[in-house]
Design a protein around this nucleic acid. Sequence first.
DNA 1: CTTTTTTCTGAGAGCGCTCTATGAAAAACC
DNA 2: GGTTTTTCATAGAGCGCTCTCAGAAAAAAG
Lengths: 365, 365
Amino acid sequence: MANSPGKKLTLEQVARLAGVSRATVSRVVNNPASVSPEYRARVEKVIADTGYQPNLAARSLASRRSGIIGLIIPSVTEFVFADPYYPILIEGISRACNLHDLTLTLFLFNSQDDQERLYRRALGTGLLDGVIVTADKLVDPLIPELIARQIPAVYVGRPPDSSQTSYVDVDNVSGAYVATSHLIRLGYERVATITGPMDSTAGIDRRAGYIKALQERGRKVDENLIVEGDFSLDSGYAAMRQLLLHRPDAVFAASDTMAFGAIRAIREAGLRVPDDVAIIGFDDLPPAMRFDPPLTTIRQPVRRNGMLAVEVLLELLEMGPHPPRHLILTTELVIRSTCGGILESGPGGSPRQQPVEGSFSDQRS
Amino acid sequence: MANSPGKKLTLEQVARLAGVSRATVSRVVNNPASVSPEYRARVEKVIADTGYQPNLAARSLASRRSGIIGLIIPSVTEFVFADPYYPILIEGISRACNLHDLTLTLFLFNSQDDQERLYRRALGTGLLDGVIVTADKLVDPLIPELIARQIPAVYVGRPPDSSQTSYVDVDNVSGAYVATSHLIRLGYERVATITGPMDSTAGIDRRAGYIKALQERGRKVDENLIVEGDFSLDSGYAAMRQLLLHRPDAVFAASDTMAFGAIRAIREAGLRVPDDVAIIGFDDLPPAMRFDPPLTTIRQPVRRNGMLAVEVLLELLEMGPHPPRHLILTTELVIRSTCGGILESGPGGSPRQQPVEGSFSDQRS
DNA sequence: CTTTTTTCTGAGAGCGCTCTATGAAAAACC
DNA sequence: GGTTTTTCATAGAGCGCTCTCAGAAAAAAG
């Protein structure tokens, strides 16, 4: 009896059934505290009996709040879903949405041509309360658009210009630094890296962390040991083949998926991991643990990132844009089997990172 | 100049700027043919100059059409994204949405508790023009709900009761039949199967295809050679370990992911694929090709399925529910390296399936 | 017991758009 | 040239909800 009215019930009818005015029903729905107990009970009974649910379009038109947020992933889908990263991010976002009774809309584009229409659809119709955008590209036409239209937005990953944009990111520089330091500490001499795309901030930051670690240890940076990938398996494979020409004994791959590709290339060259070449990844998505051999990597809290993005967006929605929020989560070194772990407990304290998954620093810029 | 009006433009204002009535602007937006060329040009110019875009909430309230559809995946997300199946399905759906200028909302639930609230949110607010639902579970409280509320819906995968429900599916029985027949034809004697969950139609149908193939060849069905999995890697691994007790020489796994788990179990037992145990999967998602050794499997057009689901939904939206539509796509045997392919060209014609990816049968029930 | 303050409900004006009914102008017909 | 059709823009009534404002009733104060 709680539902299935042939025709949809309106506020008006509920009001009539309860013998009150429309405004009162609206109030019990949106702010029960403002209605006297008797009236509230009366209305609530009718709502329970009829299974009344407000019409979102009408509510949204009148209140300019829809409870709908958008997730915009400005990359072509084939690329997007080649990696478990995005599904897990989506899972996190969706979880937080469920927690807050938000509805999630998804804007993926399948070809570059979709982009313009998609953005119009997402941003122009005024339906979305706000958006979460993944910072995939260094050149992002979306940022000025979002600012001009004054649409609350939170980036996942550091956007190219963060002066007016809130974001949630992991500390990529430090993660890469830790990864590279780990390799150096284990005694490897020729530590190479397969970077992410140089048109993404994540790619740039992780490369910077690699170089920082090298320099701090007084190693010189050899450009031959730096090859650019695009986070995909194939690019990891190709990059590794190129790297092999220069005989690295350890490699920091800027994503797990590229690490898998690299391992394949290493094996095809008749070499072994980690005996001949050690390798460390970045991400620690589920396949890393299951891979054979299990991958040593830098864990980033992707799901958590997604959830926090929603929280920050909600904050923006309530408090207005004000100073943009920047949340940086820490990463964690996860030692498994691809770096040859024997030497790892050197003198002078454990090199093992503290798991600090829950913590994060909150810095405003 | 095409956008960034500080305050959002309304139809009203566009009408004023163009010196026409609101109704006229509305008509050029929705049905340009019904407006005389001069007026149309005048209005279109203003729209182009101002970058006007109609407010979705208002439009949806007045016309009862939002251009938004929902994708409901009635499984817990951790499970959902453990497999590349869903991301690829989403990609297909999203592609078709872009093609038709539809907006996609995503309803995932992260715990069983979400379910009720999620369904209310998805179905009760009247915002969605229709929904696509994945037929994951045999017991689906959604179907009666959808019928009662008269919400246009298309299932991906055969729903438990299809008498009133449209769906798009692949021919699971025939796919499993082909897979099993392939194994038999190659000369394997003890052909086992790792089934999908028995509370899903896909699991049931693929099991049925396996049994049908066995029976048609006069093989007797040995219950010891049938173990139930849940499409996950771990379940494939566990199922295979159990199967190994009964010395199968070939296995049909009802999903690629389970096949990967099974292969791991086989190797851990000191056996080789395909020399000691042949294995064939189902899905042919990207990892199948990249796996070492590349997996022989049954290809199902997942992306295409997603796109067609949208097309069918659109049809429903335009034509009304009428007789439910049932679209069954065919599968295709993809021979790679896990079945020992040498014997495959037996006498009496090639056992290789015709690739028929593009075709599908359209049967109404 | 009257006045002031507080608490709540109801009336009513939108939110921005669609769509039917209406009527004016243009085209077609006799 | 007058009448009937056809074409096409406009007026205006909603769609279902929120929210401000005013006023009635109840509580507090004098």
